[in-house]
Design a protein around this nucleic acid. Structure first.
Lengths: 123, 123
DNA sequence: GGTGAGCTTCTGCTCTGAGCGGAGCACCGC
DNA sequence: GCGGTGCTCCGCTCAGAGCAGAAGCTCACC
């Protein structure tokens, strides 16, 4: 797990967002989404950590860490693992975007339900 | 610029790609595409490196490096800079996917033109 | 021409964390 | 019980993340 850095990342100040543009501060992190996608692809293909890691030229331990979002892979590593799984960076970014899009839609539905619930209690 | 690692990333062996699934070995790297997108967003908003970096809680020098794809930002850094620019990870991954999609389409068009040229020379 | 301001990039440094080898753990079949 | 397989834990080395100071670049003003 990533430990706290000496130079910790502070919460950014409220950005001068353009009108109509919303900021979301509670998205999952890139490495978690990416890792989950990579593991899904691998297991769907019935491959072991060892097989895929060998193809990518990395250790199975490290691939496990990447998939679990424990380690931050470099861009070259992402490309190597993608290559080993027979996918592209385009495939991965599309999949992550879809995942995030689904999460946002789910969150919005929950919000609407919660607001309706609060309004019915106030009535 | 990233120097060569002690544990260099070897070219992965040919993956057991599923039929119909293509492998592309010449895509740009994630950090280059991401960085370009972040710079585009920042300059479109008329913000300086210093302003955005302050909002994100990082140094202007480092933001410059991220934008130029010289350094590999962690997932938290990506989130911090996105927040400072008033965008989300979803926005970024969608933009990167679109960029890659456009590159692939352009490459395919070039390939078709080149094949046609070779055929006309052979005739 | 020179000067100053603002912005970005270069350089060199510290120390964090990427990447990995050995070991541990869980599960399965014999 | 055993051995085999697949994955995770643990501790380590050193590559590179992140940054401060300096340098480079552009523009406006005198």
């Amino acid at each position: 797990m990533r430990t706290r850095r000496l130079h910790a990342v502070p919460v950014p100040a409220a950005p001068a967002a353009e009108p109509g543009q919303e900021t979301t501060a509670d998205e999952p992190l890139w490495r978690h989404l990416l890792g989950a996608r990579l593991r899904r692809l691998r297991t769907d293909r019935g491959q072991t950590l060892t097989e895929t890691a060998e193809r990518a030229g990395i250790s199975p331990q490290y691939l496990s860490e990447i998939e679990r979002g424990v380690k931050e892979p470099s861009s070259e590593m992402i490309a190597a693992v993608a290559g080993a799984l027979g996918v592209t960076l385009l495939d991965l970014t599309v999949a992550v975007a879809r995942e995030l899009s689904g999460l946002r839609t789910t969150a919005e539905r929950q919000l609407v339900r919660n607001v309706a619930r609060v309004l019915s209690l106030a009535a």
